[in-house]
Design a protein around this nucleic acid. Structure first.
Lengths: 203, 203
DNA sequence: GTCTATATCGGGATAGAC
DNA sequence: GTCTATCCCGATATAGAC
């Protein structure tokens, strides 16, 4: 939980992250994590008691490292266009470093929604504030009249989906060329915010 | 594979669908499927030899029943606005009947991409044709200049995401009220196509 | 074709030596 | 703190009676 902890503990966490991200909770094997970490299963239990506890450590860490980074831009004082640009750019940048996060979190959302909701509250996620902010911009005529919930989900959808469906998209649309897909994701930073702003700006 | 088959076989398939959709391959248990079907595990193996084969049956069925319904609208002769409206409406309508499908397929995309690609080919999915069609509309000035791949993925994203993230959204944005979320999804049929068309139409 | 009983194995977890 | 050996349960799969 603190900064340093043991070296071994960190090695385990890194290995566990690798495996849990790729296989999900049910698909992951303690043996595989041990192999990845270059040690034996017993040590994993020595440090984390159970698979469940180890998973929780990974999940909490990923979540707390991830969500705040993304949300911070949602509540600053800049204009809504800038807000959207900053959010999308930020979001895609952060996920590109660990592209398995979206499917990992989506899976968890469906496997164990309560845990996610708990984490959301814990990191101070306040969707109502975001909704209210959007509504405010609508009332002031800065953007067209739209249900703020739709807009919020649209923004998230456009950011998340290309990562969640990456293996398929990369094959079907980019001849399975990772470089091309990488470039495509980079392009989306501008493309997505442009797409959104196009749609909601008042003319 | 054919229309009727045994009654028992159908019962098993229905039960398996239920469980696999909810838990995914790794999370599903043969015992649970047997319970759901009101019989014992041995019978499942009698009819489908292995968990893997049973899963494959479910997956192929879901996929073949699902994708063609959705894609058909993508290649007709109507205008691009109508095409988008028809596609989005159709897509959301179809998924609302089996809302677990998106996360189920997304999980499989990440667990076993090759299988999905194979299925895509098998049902005659031709993304290149769709891309070309979009490009054509751009060239004719019917919509703004946009990378067709971005547009295609945007459309899919806006349709799929609210289902993949449903448990969380329902709780965080709708006080965990299924009725409200249901209405919200219905609204999206118009909302999403409007959002897209707003963004890409030439002014 | 459907059941009960059982084989077999994999994986999470613990004991105990070092 | 790290290892090997082992326990033990749960899950897939099969044998065999009916």
């Amino acid at each position: 939980m603190s900064l340093k902890e043991t070296d071994t503990e960190q090695i385990i966490l890194n290995a566990a992250k690798e495996v849990f991200f790729k296989k999900g909770y049910d698909g992951a094997r303690m043996q595989e994590i041990a192999d990845e970490a270059g040690m034996n299963k017993a040590l994993l239990h020595y440090y984390f008691r159970s698979k469940d506890k180890l998973f929780e450590a990974i999940f909490n860490d990923a979540f707390q490292r991830f969500v705040p980074k993304i949300v911070e831009k949602m509540i600053s004082n800049i204009s809504i266009e800038e807000k959207i640009e900053a959010f999308v750019d930020n979001y895609i940048t952060v996920i590109m470093e660990v592209p398995q996060i979206p499917i990992f979190i989506l899976t968890e959302i469906n496997r164990n929604p309560e845990r996610i909701v708990g984490m959301m509250k814990k990191v101070g996620m306040q969707p109502d504030l975001i909704i209210a902010g959007i509504q405010n911009d609508i009332d002031e005529g800065k953007i067209i009249d739209i249900n703020p919930r739709h807009l919020l989900i649209n923004i998230l959808a456009l950011c998340v989906f290309p990562f969640a469906g990456k293996p398929l998209m990369q094959i079907m649309l980019f001849n399975n060329n990772p470089g091309s897909y990488h470039d495509f994701l980079l392009e989306r930073k501008k493309e997505v915010s442009q797409f959104i702003i196009n749609s909601i700006k008042n003319k």
